[in-house]
Nucleic acid binder design. Sequence first.
DNA 1: GCTCTTGATGTCAGTTACTGTCATCAGCGT
DNA 2: ACGCTGATGACAGTAACTGACATCAAGAGC
Lengths: 188, 188
Amino acid sequence: MARWEPDASGRLTRAALELYAEHGYEQTTVADIAERAGVTERTYFRYFADKREVLFDASGALQELVVSAIASAPLTLSPIETIGVAMENAASLLQERREFARQRASVIATNPSLQERELLKLALLGAAAAEALRARGVREAAAALAAETGVMVFKIGFEKWVAEEESGDFPQHIRDALDDLRLLTAVT
Amino acid sequence: MARWEPDASGRLTRAALELYAEHGYEQTTVADIAERAGVTERTYFRYFADKREVLFDASGALQELVVSAIASAPLTLSPIETIGVAMENAASLLQERREFARQRASVIATNPSLQERELLKLALLGAAAAEALRARGVREAAAALAAETGVMVFKIGFEKWVAEEESGDFPQHIRDALDDLRLLTAVT
DNA sequence: GCTCTTGATGTCAGTTACTGTCATCAGCGT
DNA sequence: ACGCTGATGACAGTAACTGACATCAAGAGC
């Protein structure tokens, strides 16, 4: 524990990601994480609600980014275009932490209960995005549908981006997915 | 406990739904459920993997229905049309158990960890649907996107259907959502 | 310099979800 | 009758999580 990372929250996050990656999520106990971070188990639960939440600390910031991107988008954009721009912003943020995002994703991929939490966070992101669209005057049905569509292309774009060997362009994957969707839903 | 429901699995499901609805999910212990069903706690875990799974017993049947609907759909249908038909089939199945579905949904709505499990089951449904589309020759990108779109309209349609006072038409809600999506994504 | 407060942490006891292991017991074929 | 098998009970154990209280360091005000 040390000068280079003085706050307990950061040390816990780092310790958890390391241990989950090294020994597996199920094989790691909260006591293990707390010990590596130099605190007690009880303190862990003062920072994070449960054993999984330590991997999802950043989801709040992502959600705020999406909401403010929607709020500040030009009103000339359609709901889908608005949500597309917002999701591209979110993608750019993740892209800045590519290695962290990849390692985190690989841990989550190994455990269904972590996947559940990820899905819940995405659902909350969608709900917040829908709310932000409504605040712009988008009617209820369109807001929910556009927001869920945004989450969907974000998810699919993310999977493509993470799977790449070389560091590709995450926002571009989102644009691609939206274009594919337009083709799929186009009336023939 | 009695002749009308001789198998332990059915009694456990019934007991769990009752207790979750009456006293809340968190206030109910697995021991409570087992006791009402006339078995021990250990036996509960022989039938269901965890405390939540008892509410998701039917998800396997739903998934099989969707997969077989995709497999048996006319090859003239587009991927989106195929997935739409499959989801309408799933909706019809749920509609036959409307009261059960509504009560179950209201319990799930009260608890985030139950929502997580529901989201996971929907994700698994989407993955199975994508696989079924690929088996029809749909290329990877389109299969994933179409399957996720199907799950999305199913989810949105379900929320609308459950929210209704009178018993509406669930499959129709799915068609409506897909139509709305076509309008949203249409290039202007 | 000295309290006094406040926020963060440690300690400890307790509940409950979940698992492994073995004993029991009823039904069923031979 | 005998043994086999599948379902269940009984029991011990681990680990996630919570509530209550003690401690302790740092800063505010005097």
